[in-house]
Simulated scan of single mutants.
Amino acid sequence: MRVAIADDEVDVVQFLKSIIEGMGHHSMTFADGAALSQALVRETFDLVIMDWSMPKKDGLATLVWMQSALQERPPVIMLTNRTAKRDISDALNAGADDYITKPEDPTVIAARINAVLRRNANSGSFDTKAVYGRYEFDRIGQTVTIDGTIITLTAKEFELADMFFRNRDRTLSRNYIMEAIWRTTAALATRTLDMHISRVRSKLDLKPENGFRIFTVFGYGYRLETTDRG
């Protein structure tokens, strides 16, 4: 999972970063709401954790902006020292998925993060086997079958295909994909990504008549789209 952290207090950012990375997730950090907003336009995140009182654009204004500006909004946890009931209700009504008051124990924060991620996970994301139309994924054996026929995929091709199907109908940025599959965003991985996507598209015969297609979102990344055929 990829988590954005937005807070102008360096010690809070490092505190959250240690929790998130200790849970096995990736993180990106931002010092203000404007920088976070710019990143949300060009990057994919599974979760945003942000403070209310940030420079340039505060947390509430960022929440309101996310609701109107983003077609695919990630879940948001507000982590702030504001404790008034009116503030909590305003944040939740503006679109926050959870509200945590500073300071809080790391184990509680980790549990709340897991709860939000579970609520927003696609159905079947963590099952050992999953069926999507004609496609059946065995995540233990790392195999894909189409109408009972096993398709030979490399380990990276399987990871990539599985990521797309778990995130079907969701646009994923190139950096999000490369970080999750290759653990890097280097230029070399960019060429590798294009090659692997081409192979997955071909091997799994991803086209509208089979129910799914992968298409390029110019300047952003890729999307596995469910079609009404297949």
Rank of each mutant, 00 (worst) to 15 (best):
A39G: 13
L40H: 08
V41F: 15
R42N: 15
T44F: 07
D46K: 05
L47S: 08
L47H: 11
V48E: 01
I49F: 02
M50P: 03
M50L: 13
D51M: 05
D51P: 05
D51K: 05
W52H: 09
S53E: 09
S53N: 12
M54W: 02
M54D: 05
P55Y: 06
P55R: 11
P55C: 12
P55K: 11
P55F: 04
K56P: 07
K57W: 12
K57Q: 15
D58K: 01
D58L: 00
G59H: 00
G59I: 00
G59A: 01
L60N: 01
L60D: 00
L60M: 07
A61E: 14
A61K: 10
A61S: 12
L63K: 00
L63E: 00
L63C: 00
L63Q: 01
W65S: 08
W65Y: 10
M66F: 03
Q67S: 11
Q67A: 11
Q67I: 03
Q67F: 03
S68W: 06
A69S: 12
A69E: 10
L70D: 02
Q71M: 11
E72T: 02
R73D: 04
R73G: 01
R73E: 01
P74A: 06
V76I: 06
M78C: 06
M78F: 02
L79E: 05
L79W: 12
T80Y: 00
T80Q: 00
R82A: 02
T83Y: 01
A84G: 06
A84C: 04
K85I: 06
K85C: 00
R86A: 12
S89V: 15
S89E: 14
S89M: 15
D90L: 15
L92F: 05
L92R: 08
L92Y: 07
A96C: 08
D97I: 14
D97H: 15
D98M: 12
D98C: 09
Y99D: 01
Y99F: 13
I100N: 08
K102D: 02
P103C: 05
E104D: 04
E104S: 09
E104H: 04
E104K: 02
D105K: 04
D105A: 06
P106T: 05
P106H: 03
P106R: 06
T107I: 13
T107R: 14
V108H: 09
V108M: 10
R112E: 08
I113T: 12
I113S: 12
N114R: 15
A115Q: 12
A115L: 10
A115V: 05
A115T: 11
V116T: 09
V116Y: 07
V116S: 09
V116L: 09
L117V: 09
L117T: 11
R118F: 10
N120V: 09
N122W: 09
G124W: 10
G124M: 11
F126V: 13
F126I: 10
D127G: 02
D127C: 08
T128W: 04
T128M: 02
A130P: 10
V131F: 02
Y132H: 07
G133C: 04
G133E: 03
